[in-house]
Write a protein that binds this DNA or RNA. Structure first.
Lengths: 204, 204
DNA sequence: GGAAAAATTAGAAGATGTAATAATTTATAT
DNA sequence: ATATAAATTATTACATCTTCTAATTTTTCC
């Protein structure tokens, strides 16, 4: 597997693409260029780390459209938007939709690199969090329906006795489910279990 | 106590202030107007619910300056920024600093009202969360240093025996501290305690 | 210096949770 | 229909946590 982050450059103007590619190369960053949003989407692979430099105005899918599509993905590279003729509402929309930056052309090379580095760091961070989450989600999915019920009761702080009477089963059964839950979730302590339940948003 | 939310209007131009005040009155919203950022700051009261409509360009403290000051407060009303001559970088800066919106004059009355209502809702929500948090913080502050240490160990999932040996005290002492912690924090169960510790960011 | 708060310890009784083992009854799916 | 997984129960022994009572030592503050 290749862990090295890439800068994905999506712009319909060739000179911009090569200028950005060159800029990235100059600091040892790998880059991949695409001349349209669709072309990027076609090869999109959620597992590839990096960040995205995206032009707003392009034939076909616009940059903001692409941003919208990516927003539906579980994880995607942080997006830096560049534009030749941006207006304020467009910038506000892009940033509130989660873009890490919105930069007007012509941009300053150094500040672009700063932004790229920050975005790549952010990507690495959220990618780490996401992989932990997926681990835990996998374990949770392995629980049987009954075990999930018991888990919910446990994180609500209910005693085994209470759980048993609420579920109309014996305390022994609750204990059996509970120990299965701990085993399957790989939790050593109740607080482990609570921390995982947090990630899974079973709490609050 | 007065729970009714206010729209705080901060703009150096009188006509804008009265237009906005009138607009708010037309939908039954209370408003308070200020002709400068300093004037608003002088009367600022974190306990007053509502939202803030803020002009960027003003003599003295600018809108963005005021936004920065408020950002240092524990809680403040959501900020809607309005501007006559905004540029993209300014908008990006304001939104990434947490402004809920950045609107250019002249604005559409209806969309302004929509934004105001959304902001007031958001304020009510974060105000509720913040008051729960303050409750819990108050209780936490009442813990003695030793009790705080024990609490940290407990939420790390350590057993009393382990805590005792790590702190070089007897298990009885740990039990004593622990029960004091539960009592002072008003936690009935371990999961109550974990939930509160989350709010306090003692976890992760 | 002395009052008040905090930290410390112990012991005992009872509640609660855990682990290991074993067995029966229900689903579920091929 | 029949393996397989899930759900159910019980028992025993042990570990752990909780509560209560009572007391001593140490700090802290006025």
């Amino acid at each position: 597997m290749n862990n090295e982050p890439s800068v994905f450059i999506v712009d319909d103007e060739e000179p911009i693409r090569s200028a950005l590619a060159l800029l990235m190369e100059s600091v040892g960053l790998k880059s991949e260029s695409f001349s349209s949003a669709q072309e990027y989407l076609d090869q999109f692979d959620a597992t590839k780390p990096g960040c995205l430099i995206l032009d707003v105005r392009m034939p076909g899918l616009s940059g903001l459209d692409l941003q919208g599509r990516l927003g539906a993905e579980k994880i995607h590279p942080p997006i830096i938007i560049i534009t030749g003729h941006g207006d304020v509402p467009m910038a506000v929309r892009a940033v509130t939709a989660g873009a890490v930056d919105f930069i007007e052309k012509p941009f300053n090379n150094q500040s672009m690199l700063d932004n790229v580095h920050r975005a790549i760091e952010q990507d690495a961070k959220q990618r780490g969090e996401s992989s932990r989450l997926q681990d835990v989600e996998q374990r949770y999915d392995d629980l049987t329906p009954r075990e999930k019920e018991v888990l919910q009761c446990v994180i609500d702080g209910k005693r085994n006795k209470i759980i048993a009477s609420e579920m109309n089963i014996s305390q022994s059964t609750v204990e059996a489910h509970r120990s299965k839950v701990m085993e399957k979730m790989k939790a050593n302590t109740l607080s482990d279990l609570m921390r995982m339940s947090l990630l899974l948003k079973l709490i609050q």
